[in-house]
Design a protein around this nucleic acid. Structure first.
Lengths: 221, 221
DNA sequence: TGCTCCATCGAATGACCGTTCATTCGTCTT
DNA sequence: AAGACGAATGAACGGTCATTCGATGGAGCA
């Protein structure tokens, strides 16, 4: 067994404790909002004492910050990874949108939280969120531009298309109460893809990717 | 001069007072969030006493509810009005989307507020605001359905189109920081219209409304 | 003028909550 | 076994704030 120094042990404990706290907060914030969540309540949910939380997190606001950093990391990791391997540019756009939507849906509550509580973030934190979001939009936009050059897509504002896709992915979380009664997550994603691709396909594009044109069957897993 | 009964006078006063309160709240909530806004502060902004507020609004939460209902009422009033006179169904859909977008843009901060503070509403309040939103979506969806029957639009999920239009209109407010650097409000609205109509036009539709097909010039007022 | 009514006022109340810190607990060392 | 020390506890503090309610004032009426 590897022997670890005492500071490594205490680092590991700190990390574990912070995860305990953040997980409890994330559970609580599905039910209530940040202001209504008391530290007493949070301590109870995490199964620790109030004092312990302050041992590892300097303030209530920092609990929120930890949560935000958690989500941002997931997008930064998983979306580029999903697009990386795909040669075909249309399929790469599709993969990017699906990955983004999936990461978002897995953290539906946290996505809503981002909108709800962003006022509580400081300027640096908000700037960072926005930069990361633009990064992802540009990733999709670049692929749309490639598609235009390859003659698959018509001359269109690539940034607007990419923006719309990201906005509508997030809206699955924001308007879940409306959408989940009418669509499964899978069918929502596929419908949106068909809608946007139908709008921007050239004749060649539509001919080569008939499965992404409105009217093509939508199969559920 | 018309003579009014005492209950009409007191009704009119109540309405005026509530408007005073709601307007003050709307001003304050551009700067702070709902929880940080104290009733003391609200009273001061409205130029009345704390006690008076409770004379006309049962609780702090109801101030928020009044605000939400105010916006949703504006949609309910102005969108059908804008659509009412228009015979041509494509132009009617365009008018509806433009009206919705305009009402939203005029109350950009309140739209964001709706997302930020919806958790501060109780279940009944949230249900009510959701019903009003669905109403507006259905109005647009009905026109899309007409368009399908008239052979102008392809067989498409009308509710999804209507939903997307509303969601993207609202996203002008939510992601103003991103959009306003790239589009004017007018060009944003027109781009979205062209995008969606291009996606759903039949050949006949595209032939009859070339100004709404992607690539048509977008003129600013 | 004197009386009544009621809109308005705002100090007082009581509850809640973020944060602190004196105390206890558990483990390791000697 | 005894001491030492970091980890964990939770009662208490100080401040804020939604809500209440008795006081105030002025308009209408007799």
């Amino acid at each position: 067994m590897e022997q670890l120094g005492p500071e490594a042990i205490s680092d590991a404990r700190a990390q574990w404790r912070r995860r305990q706290i953040v997980d409890a907060a994330s559970r609580l914030l599905e039910r209530t909002d940040f202001h209504s969540m008391s530290m007493q309540e949070l301590a109870k949910e995490a199964g620790v004492s109030v004092g312990l939380i302050y041992q590892y997190v300097p303030s209530k606001e920092d609990v929120l910050l930890l949560l935000f950093l958690d989500i941002l990391e997931a997008y930064r990791r998983e979306v580029p990874e999903a697009m990386a391997g795909v040669e075909d540019l249309v399929e790469r756009l599709v993969a990017g949108f699906r990955a983004y939507s999936t990461v978002m849906a897995e953290r539906r509550f946290l996505t809503v939280l981002g909108y709800r509580e962003s006022k509580s973030l400081d300027v640096a934190g908000r700037r960072r969120t926005q930069e990361l979001e633009v990064e992802t939009i540009e990733l999709l936009a670049a692929t749309v531009r490639e598609g235009i050059e390859a003659g698959m897509f018509i001359e269109v504002n690539a940034e607007l298309i990419a923006y719309d896709l990201v906005a509508l992915a997030q809206s699955w979380a924001l308007k879940y109460w409306f959408l989940h009664k009418r669509f499964t997550f899978e069918s929502y994603v596929t419908h949106q893809l068909q809608l946007f691709l139908t709008a921007i396909f050239t004749e060649q594009g539509a001919r080569e990717y008939p499965q992404y044109v409105i009217g093509a069957p939508i199969t559920e897993e």
